[in-house]
């Protein structure tokens, strides 16, 4: 274990930044936080979460796939792939760190998505334990330990120091390059961990029950009457999907710029009415079916395909951002009531 005094954090960031691009959560003027490239003026956001998840670093909202030059003679492919340089993603919380595993199982499954894979390979993820969990947090329910988040490097922070524990080869390589890190006091990091554990026991959503959802529950849950009531107020916007760390659906669209065509992919939302629209019909005609799809995917379909792993990390972003305050916790609880 290593450590560095908090008043030397800027030196640490400068040292990492000298090696490769460094993204850290930074507070914006309006109070929100976002992962942005570090610069000398940047301040580390000490609040809990960025308003959007960290998935952007690997799965950006918009990404060029390929370009085409179309002429009388035919079609010519143009390489529009952005070059990926090694980077460090600092300050990822336990929930977002787990979301990378969830995304990996989709994008790195055969056939591998090389755009995503390149970014994953280029990144060193430094996670940070959550000193002050929110009442909207329920990552514990999914077996995530926010007091000891997974990552290439795990960090803890107390009032004086940042404690730094490399876990992987990538993490060790980064650590070795940072000579300013001092020998760390493990007992103090441990104390932070214990303090967090104590708070976790007091979180209102800590006992969220998941026994009635999960792999193999399609038949039991699909036709439940609760879906209609749960979705009645849903606006059909994509706020929940776009702030969600595990939502990975995308659309492929084209842009005609006159001289050429750019094919790009962008985030898409199963909440949108045109998501499954075909010239032959619409398998999910109302918001109820779309709403059901989103939660069934996270709570049943994904676990079906991925050894029971849920596609939710309990980050609580949808609890905060949904315009009408409908969210996965309400869905899980409502489905439970009817199961009894």
């Amino acid at each position: 274990m290593k450590q560095i005094a908090l008043n030397r954090l800027d030196e640490l960031f400068a040292a990492i930044s000298a090696r490769q691009t460094l993204l850290i959560p930074q507070q914006l003027e309006n109070g929100d936080a976002e992962f942005r490239p570090w610069s000398a003026e940047a301040k580390l956001y000490t609040g809990l979460k960025t308003s959007r998840s960290a998935k952007d670093a690997f799965f950006p909202q918009v990404e060029n796939l390929v370009g085409f030059k179309v002429s009388e003679q035919g079609i010519e492919l143009m390489d529009t792939r952005d070059e990926v340089q090694p980077f460090t993603l600092f300050g990822v919380r336990g929930c977002d760190a787990r979301s990378f595993d969830i995304l990996d199982r989709v994008f790195l499954a055969e056939p591998v998505d090389t755009f995503y894979a390149d970014r994953r390979a280029a990144a060193t993820v430094v996670t940070l334990a959550c000193n002050r969990p929110e009442t909207t947090c329920f990552c514990q329910s999914f077996g995530i330990d926010p007091s000891r988040p997974a990552g290439d490097v795990t960090c803890w922070m107390d009032a004086e120091n940042l404690y730094w524990q490399p876990n992987t080869d990538k993490g060790r390589a980064l650590t070795e390059a940072l000579s300013l890190l001092e020998e760390g006091e493990e007992a103090r990091a441990k104390r932070v961990e214990e303090d967090i554990q104590a708070v976790l026991k007091r979180l209102p959503l800590k006992d969220l029950s998941l026994d009635h959802v999960g792999a193999g529950k399609t038949k039991a849950l699909f036709d439940r009457p609760e879906w209609a009531e749960l979705s009645e107020a849903c606006l059909g916007c994509g706020a929940c999907t776009f702030v969600c760390p595990t939502c990975q659906c995308y659309d492929i669209e084209e842009f005609k710029s006159g001289g050429s065509v750019r094919r790009f992919r962008c985030w898409d939302s199963c909440m949108y009415s045109d998501f499954t629209l075909m010239s032959a019909g619409q398998p999910r005609p109302t918001q109820t079916e779309r709403f059901r799809q989103r939660f069934m995917h996270k709570l049943v379909y994904y676990p079906d395909n991925q050894d029971g792993l849920f596609s939710c990390v309990g980050c609580g972003r949808c609890l905060v951002k949904c315009p009408i305050h409908m969210n996965i916790v309400k869905v899980i609880n409502a489905l439970k009531e009817g199961t009894a």
């Binding site: 914006l28 003027e29 929100d32 976002e34 959007r52 909202q61 606006l235 059909g236 916007c237 994509g238 706020a239 999907t241 776009f242 985030w267 939302s269 949108y272 315009p323």
Partner: peptide
Amino acid sequence: QNELSRCIRCNACRNV
């Protein structure tokens, strides 16, 4: 630019 560049086109403003 600073404000609008954060837009993620979730369409919540339109739908509400």
